[in-house]
């Protein structure tokens, strides 16, 4: 399990719709905003890279000191962004794919408005479980 891992789902309108700190490191007070800053800035890179490839998993696209940003872009241009300090590309890929499945299930919910915040606690526990499994 990675010591630092911050997972964010960004809607196509660049609004974060799900956030989770899934790292094992003890939480620092300023970590949350630093992670947000890094991931937010990485959107600029995603914007460029997303159209250059047909793969959904963009691998590690940006880094800040020792933190790496890995991104997975769904067909609807929702971006799963993971900030991590571990180098486990396969694990991250599997993590993204499984989260994608979960996300699609959320989308299938007729009461869920696409692009709105994901508040499902079931989704949250599942994502954290996946993070423990793969990261």
């Amino acid at each position: 399990m990675a010591t630092t891992a911050c997972f964010i789902i960004v809607s196509r309108n660049d609004i974060p719709i799900y956030e989770a700190e899934v790292g094992s490191a003890t939480k620092r007070e300023d970590a949350a905003q630093l992670h947000q800053f890094i991931l937010h800035a990485a959107l600029d890179i995603v914007q460029d890279l997303a159209w250059t490839t047909s793969a959904m998993f963009l691998k590690a696209i940006d880094r800040f000191n020792d933190l790496v940003v890995s991104v997975y872009v769904t067909a609807g241009h929702t971006r799963f962004m993971l900030l991590h300090d571990s180098r486990n590309d396969d694990g991250i890929k599997s993590f993204f794919q499984e989260v994608h499945e979960l996300y699609i299930k959320i989308l299938l919910n007729p009461l869920y408005l696409p692009g709105s915040r994901i508040t499902s606690s079931h989704f949250d526990t599942k994502v954290r479980g996946l993070a423990r499994k793969y990261l």
């Binding site: 937010h40 800035a41 914007q47």
Partner: peptide, 17 residues
């Protein structure tokens, strides 16, 4: 970052901070 084409505003903001 601001001057790059296309401008990378988020990076711009982050580095300003």
């Amino acid at each position: 970052y601001l001057l790059s084409k296309p401008p990378m505003l988020r990076k711009f903001g982050f580095h300003l901070v």
